[in-house]
Design a protein around this nucleic acid. Structure first.
Length: 405
DNA sequence: CTTCCACGGGAACACTGGGGTG
DNA sequence: CACCCCAGTGTTCCCGTGGAAG
């Protein structure tokens, strides 16, 4: 046997090019998005005619190709702009990372070679820096704000300033493209911002199972070696993802993980069973990942719910019960407990993450509560919680058997 | 109609980590 | 250097409110 890596360099038997299946990959063609591409291109083509394009707001659930489409059109437009000698720059900002007014303008100012610290200055100073930076010459700037719904509330000042910036510029023109997962997010915005940002609105509908199959087939062509996919694999991946509101990212993940599982099992082909296993593993991973990255206090709240589940033979608990158990846990760990008010917020967050289920119920004479229950198997949460050394002690917390009579 | 409990919005506060200025 | 300014985050405090049992 020659080198250890000899057999491994060629990417194994299954994959030819795994990168193609990663969510960051921008494909050459985007099936079933022709209409949207055309629409965006129509609007942005204003730049090439020397006009300011309208602002665009794009809606669609996760994995409907919003980001990929916009990035694809951007690339094309930039290329065309270079060819025609018109100055246009498209700046992509993920609002999840740059989620406040300050950070957005600081990033933009830096893009135009201004020196701005990422923290410390007054915001209007950063804003002026950015304006000065853009306005040095005649140019078109299109700011792409991905996950723009993240800005509702704390960052909407950025949207407001961006929407009226053109009246303060002499040379440059700025437009924006907002990409949102949340169809209702404009409700949270000021009327003026709403009308300005939503000059053009484009909807990305979820893919159906057949469309997902097309997407998968196209990528699989490049990603896998010939005839390693069982005929049932692509339809099954598509079907799984279609249940999940037609999420293409999910479908691609599924396909990739299925391939990895098949490879590790030394199977010459990817089979249906691999897909099923992949589906389970992805979900399990998600839970582990979410729980692991929870802030300490949230972990304690979550663990209180787990503990309650052991102590009583019940599934659902009132917020009062949970809060009491939480206080006991804090005492046990020698920590200051948070207020009830704060804990209800933490509970809501856990609910949104899908780890627990919380419904508000009114018990008439006996007031109002949230009924809280774990919505994932205890066995997948508890071990992860115990990995946190600060929580380890909770393993031996005395479970009081004193029942309410 | 009252009553009860906790929900959840909003203001205010504390604290952090960075800035600029004299 | 000391000192104050600023944005951002997590928290507490205060409080009006929902809605069915009694």
């Amino acid at each position: 046997m020659d080198n250890l890596f000899e057999g491994l360099v060629k990417g194994g038997r299954i994959f030819a090019n795994k990168e193609v299946l990663r969510p960051t990959y921008i494909p050459e063609s985007l099936p079933h998005r022709e209409k949207q591409i055309k629409h965006i291109a129509d609007i942005l083509s204003a730049v090439l005619r020397g006009e300011t394009p309208s602002n665009i707001l794009i809606y669609g659930k996760t994995g409907t190709g919003k980001t990929a489409t916009v990035k694809y059109v951007s690339k094309e437009l930039e290329a065309m702009g270079r060819k025609m000698g018109s100055k246009c720059s498209l700046i992509y900002i993920n609002s999840e990372v740059f989620d406040t007014q300050y950070r957005i303008f600081a990033y933009l100012a830096r893009f135009f070679n201004k020196r701005v610290p990422m923290i410390g200055w007054p915001t209007d100073m950063v804003y002026s820096e950015f304006k000065a930076g853009v306005d040095t010459e005649k140019r078109y700037v299109i700011v792409i704000l991905d996950e723009v719904d993240r800005l509702a509330g704390k960052g909407d000042g950025a949207l407001y300033n961006l929407s009226r910036i053109n009246s303060e510029l002499n040379n440059a023109k700025v437009s924006m493209i907002g990409i949102s997962n949340d169809l209702t997010f404009t409700d949270l915005l000021d009327q003026r911002i709403r009308s300005s940002l939503g000059e053009e609105e484009i909807i990305f509908p979820p893919y159906n199972a057949a469309q997902l199959q097309d997407i998968l087939s196209e990528r699989a062509e490049i990603a896998f070696n010939d005839s390693v996919l069982d005929d049932s694999v692509i339809p099954l991946c598509a079907a799984f993802a279609a249940q999940e509101h037609g999420d293409a990212r999910r479908a691609l993940d599924l396909l990739r993980v299925s391939g990895e599982i098949a490879e590790r099992a030394n199977s010459p082909k990817v089979l249906e069973e691999h897909v099923r296993e992949a589906s389970e593993r992805i979900e399990a991973n998600r839970i582990v990942e979410v729980v692991k990255t929870l802030p300490l206090q949230s972990k304690i709240v979550l663990s209180s719910i787990v503990l309650l589940g052991r102590e009583r033979n019940k599934k659902r608990f009132s917020s009062g019960e949970v809060y009491n158990m939480y206080r006991r846990s804090c005492n046990f760990l020698g920590m200051e407990p948070l207020t009830q008010r704060r804990v209800t917020d933490l509970v809501s967050e856990l609910d949104i993450l899908g780890l627990i289920n919380a419904v508000i119920v009114s018990k008439g004479r006996y007031g109002r509560t949230k009924e809280i229950s774990l919505s994932v198997p205890e066995s997948s949460v508890q071990p992860v919680l115990m990995e946190d050394y600060k929580l380890k002690a909770l393993a031996n917390i005395k479970v009081k058997t004193q029942m309410t009579l």
